[in-house]
Design a protein around this nucleic acid. Structure first.
Length: 811
RNA sequence: GCGGAUGUGGUGGAAUUGGUAGACACGCUAGCCUUAGGAGCUAGUGUCGCAAGACGUGAAGGUUCAAGUCCUUUCAUCCGCACCA
């Protein structure tokens, strides 16, 4: 009998699929489209590890499943090639990132193909190719034209090692995400001119649309918190002995009578102007200290510190004079950078008031000052007795008459900082002209090609190595024709990865970013998964898609229909796989050791529910290997015996049809572990049946075995392709072959009913499937064991049809 | 601190959503078989107990004929966010 030997089979079918273009998608196909994909991969020298293998198999199974069901199913492939590691490697070795990618990416090809992923390689893209980043740059020009790209000097995180600014999410535990080991220093803030995309303009719609997304709740909540909408009001306070107005944001204008002092962020514009002469020294000292500290350092110690400015403000509601302080617990980037402090009803203000002996006035009559409880107003003049929610509206309305307040909504999300002072990225298509200021590179001159260099060290003045590419740098202003210089900043790689899914849908278009009609046909991405980036990347991709929607380029404002935030595979000790720890497991190791990709894929999908993270257990692969081996062997035995009896025995069908139903619905919901368990169970039952009655009834057996092969295909595509062909087929099982169950094979002749007496299981009885309650009851009473517990007639009888009979007797 | 999730045998995990807890695997034990193979087959494997039986889903209460599932309190672990006014 032919033995299961993955080594021979897998390579053979991988080649056959390539030759037959099995996974090549026809964008114009009349079939219903389906797109299943995992998150963009960043190609590093280390190659993929088991964690990647798990993630990409999840979407591959989905794409294969749909392809088998007859969809035109697309599993796209591409590389998020720009980014720091390749550049740092270039600085260290002198090997250009271009050359480096040219050797790294083929290694990925090898791994991806060995895993048996059904990618359409004819549509491969990479973000570092000018044919791609031409359009990344084009997006920048569109943002600029729409007023959504702007430059501004900001305090930015700066990593000394990277010589670049970092976004908030690239700062982890006060260290750079790339330099987070014990001997790396913490990042600090620096004022740098940065380009921003005005994602805040989209904050509201990005938030509103979340509820309708078919995504994991964790991700939806994380995005909501990230966007952080709060409704409140801006209230204007007059400043004593000054024309300046102090505007604060508050979510609780009803507590205005309880405002006993004001607090400005140390960076607030008015600090200098307001500070009185005697306080100047102390205030400037505090400001200096505060700005030197990183935001993370400030947050590390929650002790409230601050100093008095010497100035007073007038509360617009009751003309009370209250002192103005500065303190670093007020953040410059949120609201107006200034607050009215209501120590009676705010923990932070209270702590501050206690420390500096400032008055505390209670204005909402709540137990324990819990302001989230709805209660009546006190100490608030004419508003006393009102419910706080009513007072909230009334106070704003009253002040609004004199323009002293207005309803306002604020967001936590900040504009997206998109420029990086690095070489290995898409150059920002801007020309700086002394006369004309910032001028866009005209569309017909795109792409601005990244020049090849020999030295990749940042220039040291805060600019990238591009500042030394003098020939590239010098350019004529497209506006006035005078001498000008190119922008030396490049774009954040998050931009490259926020629109790639759209490019996948028209990857070779050289005339436009994509063809709208085609993208409209193929959007949204039906299935998307990944173990990271619940917020940043996923919000950016949504923002970008909405932007294209506004431009009229696409109909659908949301890119991803279904998003699965899957768990990670960690090392056996629970640690993350990482290059620095050197604990990565190369999938090729497992595959080449003889178990093959099919067993590895099946194990990874079987080990745990996908949203849970699982520990890598090398013992697990032999387990699924055994299962595949059993599927292989029973098919081979069937073929070898060439049975020819037609006995009308539908037993094999009664085993396989319930499995078809279960597997189909489980895969649809990405419950792969139970889908695989159901296949194992069916396979075991088929073995039992074979032991009992052999391959009785050839036709039923053939149907059962072919169905089993089809069911296994998404997980073990190579083995099942071989079996499919052994069973006499010449086409691919991977395309258009998914079994359909027939309800008539789901039911059996008898059913097992659990019988409980006084809530305890006492017996299981076998009754005909059509037995009604009285028949079941009679059968139960006839059961000796049950009868022994029935000391009297049941005073209560509960029957759950087909499952359980519960009898209650007096104790 | 806030938010989200998770807690079930020696291990990974099932459980039709209030209806037989431990499916399916891993591991382990015993036996069989052999063209000694990353084998295969048979039986067993929650705990206590010779058994009958009792107990058992982080802990403690509660509702119910019936609770892993619902309610109340509580503990632990993981992941986000973190002075957002």
């Amino acid at each position: 009998m032919k033995r299961y030997n993955p080594k021979d089979i897998e390579v053979k079918w991988q080649k056959w699929w390539d030759d037959n273009k099995t996974y090549q998608v026809d964008f114009d196909s009349p079939k219903t489209k389906y797109v299943g994909m995992g998150m963009f991969n960043y190609p590093s020298g280390a190659g993929i590890h088991i964690g990647h293998a798990m993630s990409y198999t999840v979407s591959d199974v989905m794409a294969r499943f749909k392809r088998q069901q007859g969809y035109e199913s697309y599993n796209p492939i591409g590389w998020d090639a720009f980014g720091l590691p390749a550049e740092n490697y270039a600085i260290k070795t002198g090997v250009s990132p271009q050359a480096n990618m040219a050797t790294i990416i083929p290694g990925y090809h090898k791994q991806y193909k060995a895993m048996g992923w059904s990618n359409d390689w004819s549509k491969e893209i990479s973000t570092h190719e000018p044919t791609y980043y031409k359009w990344t740059q084009w997006i920048f020009t569109q943002m600029f034209k729409q007023g959504l790209a702007y430059q501004d000097a900001r305090m930015q995180w700066w990593c000394e090692k990277c010589q670049t600014v970092l976004s908030n999410e690239q700062v982890i535990d006060s260290k750079c995400w790339r330099h987070d080991s014990a001997d790396d220093v913490e990042v600090a803030k620096r004022e740098v001119k940065q380009w921003f995309f005005k994602i805040t303009d989209y904050a509201d719609e990005l938030l509103e649309a979340i509820d309708d997304l078919n995504w994991t709740d964790t991700v939806k909540t994380a995005q909501k918190n990230w966007i952080g909408k709060s409704k409140g009001a801006e209230v204007t306070f007059a400043v004593d002995a000054s024309d300046e107005k102090l505007v604060v944001f508050t979510t609780r204008p009803d507590t205005l009578y309880g405002a006993t002092f004001m607090v400005l962020a140390p960076e607030h514009d008015l600090v200098d102007k307001l500070t009185t002469e005697p306080q100047k020294a102390e205030v400037s000292n505090y400001v200096k200290q505060a700005t030197k500290k990183s935001e993370v350092e400030r947050q590390a110690s929650k002790d409230k510190t601050g100093v008095f400015t010497g100035a007073y403000a007038t509360n617009p509601i009751n003309q009370a004079k209250i002192p103005i302080w500065i303190a670093d617990y007020v953040l410059v980037g949120y609201g107006t950078g200034a607050i009215m402090a209501v120590p009676a009803h705010d923990e932070r203000d209270k702590e501050f008031a206690v420390k500096y002996s400032l008055p505390i006035i209670k204005v909402v009559d709540t137990p324990e000052d819990d302001i989230s409880v709805e209660a009546k107003m006190i100490n608030s003049d004419t508003f006393n007795g009102l419910m706080s929610s009513d007072a909230r509206e009334k106070i704003v309305a009253d002040l609004q008459v004199n323009n002293l307040a207005e309803s306002k909504t604020t967001f936590k999300i900040r504009d997206w900082s998109v420029s990086r002072q690095r070489y290995w990225g898409a150059p920002i298509p801007i020309i700086n002209c002394q006369k004309c200021d910032q001028v866009l590179v005209p569309d017909d001159q795109l792409p601005v090609v990244l020049p090849e260099l020999e030295d990749f060290q940042p220039s040291g003045d805060g600019r990238s190595a591009l500042a030394r590419a003098s020939e590239w740098l010098k350019v004529k202003c497209p506006n006035c024709g005078g001498d000008a210089e190119r922008e030396t900043d490049t774009l954040d790689t998050y931009i490259c990865s926020s629109w790639y899914m759209l490019r996948y849908l028209d990857p070779h278009n050289s005339e436009a970013i994509f063809n709208s009609q085609q993208v409209n046909k193929w959007l949204p991405i039906d299935f998307y998964n990944g173990a990271d980036h619940a917020t940043a990347h996923m919000i950016y991709a949504r923002f970008m898609t909405r932007f294209f929607h506004k431009l009229g380029l696409i109909d659908n404002p949301e890119p991803f229909k279904k998003f699965l935030f899957n768990g990670k595979v960690t090392a056996a000790d629970g640690q993350m796989f990482s290059k620095s720890k050197g604990n990565g497991v190369d999938p090729l190791e497992i595959i080449n050791s003889g178990y093959g990709a099919d067993a590895l894929r099946t194990y990874l999908m079987f080990a745990a529910p996908l949203e849970l993270s699982a520990k890598w257990d090398a013992q697990g692969v032999p387990g699924t290997y055994r299962f595949l081996n059993r599927v292989w062997n029973i098919v081979q035995e069937y073929l070898e015996l060439q049975p020819s009896s037609e006995t009308n025995n539908d037993a094999p069908l009664r085993i396989i049809h319930p499995a078809i139903k279960k597997v189909t619905s489980d895969i649809e919901e990405q419950k792969y572990n139970t889908a695989i368990a159901a296949m194992m169970q069916a396979c075991n039952s088929l073995y039992d049946l074979k032991a009992m009655s052999g391959f009785d009834d050839t036709t039923s057996w053939r149907q059962a075995l072919e169905s089993l092969v089809m069911l296994v295909t998404p997980f073990a595509p190579h083995m099942s392709e071989q079996l499919w062909h052994d069973l006499g087929h010449e086409d691919s099982v991977n395309k258009g072959h998914w079994p359909v169950w027939d309800d008539k094979f789901l039911a059996s002749d008898t059913m097992t009913i659990a019988v409980q007496v006084n809530g305890k299981l006492r017996a299981e009885i076998e009754v005909p499937s059509d037995a009604d309650q009285s028949a079941v009851l009679a059968a139960a009473k006839a059961n000796l064991k049950v009868a022994g517990y029935l000391t009297s007639d049941p005073i209560k009888t509960i029957y759950v049809p087909g499952r359980l009979l519960s009898l209650v007797v007096r104790a």
